[in-house]
């Protein structure tokens, strides 16, 4: 079926009526609200623009984003490198498996108190907890990906005398990419959750901390704007990831579409 432009618009419109209705209902139902927990949406949005389209955004959100990016980048690096090493060795897996299995079974957020004990309340604690939690799914996916390399592809590479490192870089790793990306996505979501959790638990700075303090001080409007901003950030991060993935794995999705 060919997607004409009006068909596309129609699909967008069909997808839009529910969010529009929700926002409209929220707006009208809360307009006269006397319930302190559900202030009028108009006031929330007013406060939202006031807070987040100002210097406050830089002061509050940047530290969170910096920790998030740093922790996630480290997790990607460690997860993929370690995963490739472990996945490439049969004995490596046997020894590493129980440890990996245990660490990944601990809810990511519950590891934060451990890092608070080790590092105190500084940046190292936040970055370390983000890194460790986000590394696990990436590590596991990379191990699986490298291990499940297609036999025919690897043997073809061997017959054509590709060196070990060429086999790794040109055959095994690209073949493992779809799986690695699923690990990267899970890691991304965990990294975001732990970023916020590390601010909820070890108070100090950042958007999570801001929102929690607002809640505790009954600054309800500020709390709502914090929640909305965190939700939007969480959503945007996923959108950006999807775009990167679609681009990097265009061969994979192209192939899947045809088969």
């Amino acid at each position: 079926m060919i997607m004409t432009w009006w068909r596309r618009i129609l699909i967008v419109l069909i997808g839009a009526w529910i969010p529009v209705t929700i926002i409209y209902a929220w707006w009208t139902l809360s307009a006269e609200s006397a319930n302190p927990y559900f202030p009028p949406l108009s006031l929330i949005l007013e406060r939202f623009t006031e807070l987040w389209f100002s210097q406050e955004f830089v002061v509050t959100v940047f530290p969170s984003l910096r920790n998030f990016i740093l922790g996630y980048a480290l997790a990607c690096l460690i997860g993929i490198v370690l995963g490739t090493l472990i996945g490439g060795s049969r004995t490596g897996i046997k020894y590493a498996e129980p440890i990996i299995d245990f660490v990944r079974s601990i809810p990511a957020v519950a590891t934060v108190p451990i890092f608070i004990v080790i590092f105190g309340l500084d940046i190292a604690m936040r970055v370390a907890s983000i890194t460790v939690a986000a590394t696990m799914p990436i590590l596991i996916a990379t191990i699986q990906g490298v291990r499940s390399a297609d036999v025919v592809q690897v043997e073809t590479a061997r017959v054509f005398h590709l060196s070990k490192s060429q086999q790794l870089w040109r055959v095994r790793l690209p073949g493992a990419l779809p799986l690695i990306f699923s690990g990267l996505q899970l890691g991304l979501q965990i990294a975001f959750i732990v970023t916020i959790a590390s601010e909820f638990l070890g108070s100090g700075f950042g958007i999570g901390s801001f929102t929690l303090i607002a809640t505790e001080s009954f600054l309800i409007l500020d709390a709502w704007t914090g929640v909305i901003l965190m939700g939007l950030l969480g959503y945007l991060i996923n959108v950006v990831f999807d775009i990167v993935e679609r681009f990097t794995l265009r061969w994979y999705y192209g192939q899947k579409k045809i088969v």
Binding site: F200, A214, I220, A223, V227, G234
Partner: peptide
Amino acid sequence: KVIPPIVIIPIVILV
């Protein structure tokens, strides 16, 4: 689906 549940905790605690 992609909004992490942790972000709504402050409001949920309030209510």
